[in-house]
């Protein structure tokens, strides 16, 4: 592939793919590695790209596959046990800033709870949730990237939100 085209693709999609990868692996260096590997695949395999799918869909799929490989290799446990969540929650002493109001503190706590709750989602639920909420992709686009039906994408998103809602409610009760 032409270097100029490659540079154009990189400038356009690298930051976006990095955000996607980061939200999945929660680690800057690993997310950057995933983006690099994705672009190496793109550089060496643009001939395999079929025009019926758009470049963005194709690149998202590469990143998603690399994220799945990452989890497979690391054998990372996606489901944090209930005990772990509440233990880590209890151990986390929120830094109390005098200038920070109660509302900001509550928001911060909510964000932390949600981050932990997101870890409880299955890989598929997390992928669909991230694509819908952060990348604002349509269900059609998500279904193409993940090679699933539109209905399955919608159902997965629904399950993800329901699960997050339940976990958040439980955490707030505590």
């Amino acid at each position: 592939m032409n270097e100029k085209d490659f540079e154009h693709l990189y400038k356009r999609y690298a930051p976006m793919l990095y955000r996607t990868a980061y939200r999945m692996v929660k680690n800057d260096a690993d997310a950057l590695d995933i983006v690099q590997d994705a672009f190496i695949r793109v550089f060496n395999g643009l001939g395999k790209f079929r025009n019926e799918a758009n470049v963005q869909t194709w690149m998202y799929r590469i990143v998603m596959n690399l994220c799945y490989d990452y989890f497979r290799k690391r054998k990372r446990i996606l489901f944090v046990s209930e005990k772990d969540i509440f233990d880590s929650e209890a151990n986390q002493e929120m830094p109390v800033n005098e200038s920070t109001g109660e509302f900001a503190e509550l928001e911060n706590q909510r964000k932390q709870n949600l981050q932990m709750a997101l870890e409880k989602l299955t890989l598929r639920q997390k992928t669909v949730f991230n694509m819908r909420i952060y990348e604002e992709l349509s269900y059609e686009e998500i279904s193409k990237i993940m090679k699933i039906k539109v209905g399955t994408a919608k159902a997965t998103f629904f399950q993800a939100v329901e699960k997050l809602k339940t976990i958040m409610k439980e955490m707030e009760k505590k």
Binding site: Y22, R23, D28, E107, Q115, I133, Y134, V161, L164
Partner: peptide, 11 residues
Amino acid sequence: TIDAARKIEVP
């Protein structure tokens, strides 16, 4: 829940 998710920052 969705608002809190949107506020999670990425470097």
